[in-house]
Amino acid sequence: MVTLLFLLLSSIIPFTFSTSLPPLLPVDFPDPSIIYSPQNRTWYAFSTSTRTKNIQVASSPSSPWGPWTLLESVDPLPDPGGWTAGPFSQTWAPSIVSIPHATANDTKYVLYYAAQLPSNSSAFHCVGAATSSTILGPYVPLPSPLACPLSRGGAIDPSGFLDPATGKRYLLYKVDGNSLGGGGSCRNTVPPVRNTPIMLQEVRREDGTTLVGEPVQVLDRDEGDGPLVEAPDLWYDAEAQSYVLFFSNHCWSEAGYSVNYALNGTAGTGQGVGGKKGERALIRTMGRDGFNLTAPGGAANWYDEETGERGIVFHADCEGGFRCMFGAGVRFKDGRLEVFSKNGMGDDDDVVDDDAKV
């Protein structure tokens, strides 16, 4: 079992909502993921539940930079499944993958999500999946969860990944150890402090829901991460021959929350990641990235085939006590990632390179 250990600097910074980066969607839209539908020529973003929806959806017909519109009448997961606490409880961090079939018009979609368990285990979440023949659903849940390590705290924050170097498909998720923690920040800074490992589970390429073998641990928290690491999202860059693992650390409700990444230079291992090459804090509260955001986290990557651009969507604190969806471009420069924003004309603006070594 391969483990990546990270030691990241953190500090307590006062909250502020003065930001030089406007949100892509100025509503409460935490834990966003993003997917492009070539059939509809539309980008879609999916987000954590509200009191009236199990999953939120927004769309952008032009590009991942927007303009984005919240689809107020759409709930792609009207029933999260019989193994959950039911509709409008806690359905978190959706991630959608497309499973192409014989023809372009015969695509199946798989929605991964974390859902609260029924009342006798309501402190825990597990990772489930639902399927649909259309991108907006309705999605039909599988009868049981895909990952549910209750003795270790359950599982949250799923994301799907198709490895272009090996052709294998994977599901990443966080073992939610801090749900068993002793208290403090995100319930996990007072002993006994629990591990919150990120796991990589192979699934059948043809369906995205049949488990293949056992999960592999690819990352875990260290003292510098505070109470947790979470929100994994994986990308393989063929030109750099490197896997990029985005993740968040510290507590989502505090200013120390941040978007981070780690690199693995060994392609084609069949495990996706393994073997640390480097790690960086990418977007931090009032950090050197110049965005002046508070508690950024939950990043999910996108790639625009028409423009060749790659970027991320993520959430950060915004007015009204919300966690709005923001976006940034990402690219390699001198062996590391840099992030950049877009101005209204679509040109690069405020190009930054977070070169703080940790």
Rank of each mutant, 00 (worst) to 15 (best):
V2Q: 09
L4N: 05
L4F: 01
F6R: 00
L7N: 03
I12M: 02
F15P: 12
S20Q: 11
L24E: 10
L24K: 10
L25G: 06
L25V: 12
V27R: 11
F29M: 07
P30G: 03
P30M: 08
Q39A: 15
N40L: 12
T42M: 10
A45F: 01
F46A: 06
T48F: 11
T48Y: 06
S49C: 07
T50D: 00
K53I: 06
N54H: 11
P61Y: 04
S63V: 06
P67K: 09
W68E: 03
L70D: 01
E72G: 08
S73F: 08
P78A: 07
D79H: 10
G82I: 11
G86Q: 11
Q90F: 14
T91F: 00
W92Q: 01
A93S: 13
S95H: 09
A102G: 07
Y112K: 02
A114C: 00
A115H: 08
Q116F: 04
Q116Y: 11
P118L: 09
N120F: 13
S122N: 15
A123V: 14
H125Q: 14
V127A: 07
T134Y: 02
I135A: 02
G137V: 14
Y139R: 14
V140S: 08
A147G: 03
C148Y: 07
S151N: 11
S151R: 08
G153Y: 04
P158K: 05
Y173S: 02
G181N: 03
G181T: 04
S185Y: 10
S185L: 07
N188F: 04
V190W: 05
P191E: 05
P192R: 09
P192L: 09
P197N: 06
Q201W: 07
D207G: 03
L211I: 13
G213W: 11
E214Y: 05
P215S: 13
V216T: 14
L219F: 15
D222S: 15
E223S: 11
G224N: 04
A231C: 14
P232E: 06
D233S: 15
W235A: 05
A238I: 06
Q241E: 10
F247L: 04
S248M: 09
C251R: 00
A255K: 09
Y257I: 10
Y257G: 07
S258T: 11
Y261R: 05
A262M: 00
A262I: 01
R284W: 11
T285F: 07
G287A: 12
G287V: 13
D289H: 12
F291M: 00
F291E: 00
N292R: 09
N292L: 13
A295Q: 03
W302V: 07
E309W: 07
I312T: 08
V313R: 01
H315E: 05
D317C: 01
D317E: 03
M325E: 04
A328E: 08
R331D: 07
K333D: 12
G335W: 05
G335I: 08
V339E: 06
K342W: 14
D347N: 00
D350C: 06
V352F: 09
V352E: 07
D353S: 14
D353A: 13
V358L: 15
